[in-house]
Design a protein around this nucleic acid. Structure first.
Length: 469
RNA sequence: GGUCCCAUCGUCUAGUGGCCUAGGACGCCGGCCUCUCACGCCGGAAACACGGGUUCGAGUCCCGUUGGGAUCACCA
């Protein structure tokens, strides 16, 4: 079987957005699944709009997603000689011609056509003029006037276009630079791309490209047009729907594996399975089960999936992802073992890495500030005796583990005839400053003897200070 | 407006003519568990857009209607 070669061709006119990430993912996954090749190509023929900052942003996003490429990145801006050569071929074999129609006239024509409900097409004024190259002249593709062009699409099935609907589009601008539809074809042909998975918004371009393939005498790749990603108002996802850039999701505390799991699952399915690891995705991804209808991007489901991935990821593997968020909170170089223990207490209650970083904060505090409400409600003089008992029970403890802690608590509970609930909440406030936290035994164990005892004796002092004041 | 595409719970989807009194997931509601919050577990409400065909039988095939989306550049 022929080796599958796919590509991802972003244009560097901004960051990598959600929709782009998904098509990149589909192409990458398909290549990996088929043990083929995945090529990265930067489409920067529009010199005015392309920036190096965008190129960097795209690399950064791809890297975070864990999408790597086997060839490239190619830059179209460095391939102009090649495009010139192919335009020459088209001119030579009569598939293209020079045109000197002034753009203003064409624009007027288009508007007029639209107004009467017609199709804004080039009228072919220069089609048979036999013009040569010259200042201000563009090169147009000589499109067939009759017949049909069919696009075989592995997702949508065959789509038939009337050639009469197509016009003689520009392949080279008046400044000599080639246009999109043309360079894509030249690149895909010369790079040996045989599978083109891209957004739905390209279907109407495809017949023109197919015509170009034919004019160049090249074989057609397999096309697969994936439906769009929509915002919650069912229109194409855009900035007003919230974050668009992929790296924004990284900064919001999502795990890359969760993000790709969500992105792929939006539009593709494998029976009832919702959770996929990266390698499962590579193993199971296929084009057959890509859906035909557009899907709404749902941040809540992404979040739920992120929580699942956080739970499923071993604590030590989470560390590198969590560290930047801790650093933002002034926690640098935390002890890995300490951090591992912390993560273990937090991974079932964190939906994002931000949640987790926030939840980890109290572990690192030198002194605990008590939440005002919690202080008032739980740190009352009445809890002093049990707290004192607990403190001494803990001090005596030989083994600082969950069973040891339990016996210390049990002894305290019995001595004062209290239920765990009565004593756990004040202790929680003492250790964390608040009323919401991981299990009390887990915290004490991870925090360690010194810090726990210190925080407990501090709270005792705090309560005593109250009754005196 | 022309052309093209799409149509199962609020959302993502399973479903490829009988296995569907339509399954799963997110969200929502209720309960259990419980040291708080979560996790987990159990249960619930919630969909085949509409109308015609084809067929013994249609969510599944065909046509139409309606609705939604995409696209119509010397942008990609």
């Amino acid at each position: 079987m022929e080796e599958i070669i796919t590509r991802f061709p972003p244009s560097p006119t901004g960051y990598l957005h959600v929709g782009g990430a998904r098509t990149a993912l589909f192409n990458w996954l398909y290549a990996r699944h088929k043990k083929g090749k995945f090529i990265l190509r930067i489409e920067d023929t529009d010199v005015k709009r392309s920036t190096q900052a965008s190129v960097d942003a795209i690399f950064e996003a791809l890297e975070w997603l864990g999408i790597d490429w086997d060839e490239g990145p190619y830059f179209q801006s460095q391939r102009f000689d090649l495009y010139r050569e192919y335009i020459g071929k088209l001119l030579e074999n009569g598939h293209a011609y020079y045109c000197d129609c002034p753009p203003e006239r064409l624009e007027r024509m288009r508007k007029a056509a639209m107004d009467v409900g017609g199709k804004p097409k080039y009228d072919g004024t220069c089609r048979e003029k036999g013009l040569g190259p010259g200042e201000g002249r563009v090169v147009r593709f000589k499109s067939p006037l009759t017949g049909t062009t069919v696009m075989p699409d592995v997702i949508k099935g065959n789509i038939v276009f009337q050639n009469a609907e197509l016009d003689d589009f520009v392949v080279a601008r008046s400044d000599g630079t080639p246009t999109y539809n043309f360079v894509v074809v030249v690149d895909d042909v010369t790079m040996g791309i045989n599978t083109v998975i891209r957004g739905d918004d390209h279907v109407n371009n495809t017949p023109r490209q197919i015509l170009l393939y034919k004019a160049l005498g090249a074989d057609l790749p397999a096309f697969g047009h994936v439906p769009m990603v929509l915002g919650n108002d069912r229109t194409r996802l855009s900035k007003r729907h919230g974050a668009m850039s992929v790296t924004a999701y990284r900064d919001m505390g999502f795990l890359p594996d969760a993000f790709i799991n969500y992105m792929v699952r939006l539009g593709w399915s494998h029976g009832d399975q919702e959770f996929f690891t990266r390698s499962e995705l590579i193993e199971k991804f296929d084009i057959d089960h890509i859906g035909k209808s557009a899907g709404v991007f749902d941040p809540e489901k992404l979040t739920a999936l992120n929580a699942d991935h956080i739970k499923a990821t071993p604590p030590e593997s989470l560390i590198p992802h969590l560290k930047p968020f801790l650093a933002e909170r002034s926690i640098v170089d935390p002890d890995p073992e300490f951090l591992k223990g912390i993560i273990r207490t937090l991974n079932t209650r964190s939906k994002t890495l931000i949640d987790m970083a926030d939840g980890a904060l109290f572990y690192f505090k030198d002194s605990i500030e008590y939440d005002e409400k919690a202080d008032k409600k739980f740190l009352k003089p009445a809890v002093l005796p049990p707290l004192e008992t607990l403190l001494s029970e803990l001090e005596k403890l030989k083994t600082w583990d969950e069973t040891g802690l339990e016996t210390a608590f049990k002894a305290t509970m019995e001595a004062h005839d209290l239920k765990l609930g009565k004593i756990a909440q004040p202790v929680r406030v003492a250790l964390t400053g608040g009323t919401v936290s991981p299990g009390i035994f887990e915290i004490i164990e991870v925090l360690g003897k010194d810090k726990s005892l210190d925080r407990l004796s501090r709270v005792i002092g705090h309560i005593q200070g109250k009754s005196e004041g």
